[in-house]
Design a protein around this nucleic acid. Sequence first.
DNA 1: GGACTGATGTCAGTCGCTGACATCAAACGT
DNA 2: ACGTTTGATGTCAGCGACTGACATCAGTCC
Lengths: 172, 172
Amino acid sequence: MELYSEQGFEKTTVAEIAERAGVTERTFFRHFADKREVLFSGAGEFQELLVGSVASAPDSLAPIDAAAEGALAAAAMLQQRAEFARQRAKVIAANPELQERELIKFASLSTALADTLRARGVTEPAASLTAEVAMAVFRTAFERWIDGTDGRDFPQVIRESLAELTALTTGR
Amino acid sequence: MELYSEQGFEKTTVAEIAERAGVTERTFFRHFADKREVLFSGAGEFQELLVGSVASAPDSLAPIDAAAEGALAAAAMLQQRAEFARQRAKVIAANPELQERELIKFASLSTALADTLRARGVTEPAASLTAEVAMAVFRTAFERWIDGTDGRDFPQVIRESLAELTALTTGR
DNA sequence: GGACTGATGTCAGTCGCTGACATCAAACGT
DNA sequence: ACGTTTGATGTCAGCGACTGACATCAGTCC
């Protein structure tokens, strides 16, 4: 993160990262699949939190609302590390390769979410569609939150986006 | 496409592609930004078709329905090249790097769609959210269509997914 | 105390990708 | 008709990401 922030992702070489970490380049690649993955090492815990929230949501909740619980929990988590999240987002926004990686992480999150919904009894294609839509809401809300100059409450932005979603499909 | 289908994306070297095309490796990189981009050379026309359909949709249509027009037009186009689309999808499904590239193309489509909606007078954040949701619908419908053993009508699958979307937010 | 295991270092090599320069043919202008 | 210009291609050298194979060495287990 230090090197990526200072001089950018592309201009940073794996040799440099390894040197600052006090290890060999080869060792770096034993810890991370590739140069980008360093910025996504927390993805596993993030997914667990999101999926866990959905799985433990009351059965009475509609699929989209159960998914929303996961998005809210995830948002609250990022809110905690707002400083770090902002810096990380800045690095990613400056590099297409990192954006690609982020997108596939989101996609992975989406399929995991769909699995969880299916475990709740939601059938296809509702499960996949709900998951995709929920992640779409999360992404747009995240962007609004991270770009916002004022320090808005992330979960609150999520709730607003969910309301927007409802308006989309009912207001016609 | 031939080489990627025969022996897979990873095991295909740019030198091989260049050789079969009768050019130099250097020339390959003058036509395509990188090894993956070969499979996405049609992205520009695809985007024009989708965006064009949305822009020329009746003003009376709600944002989500205008976006749906774009999705339907895009679906009809892919339906034409069903054979090719299927083979291409197979190659992409077999390789994570290609999936990443496809995702960022979808993201690019989403922002272009949001721009078009904004040109129709839709305000933020409704424009971005509508675009994201519309692309989510398209993606899930595409997956269902491409995976389907029976040769279903792609635009029809899109319409069904749109109905599902409405059900998601109203059925609770 | 010796075998085993896991993490690290070392080294050579492949492949994607780029910059710089040369070549050559077609198009252009006078 | 001929020199010029332009655009596409070839050639070559080189960087950096990533991998496989083998060696080293510490801690752990019988």
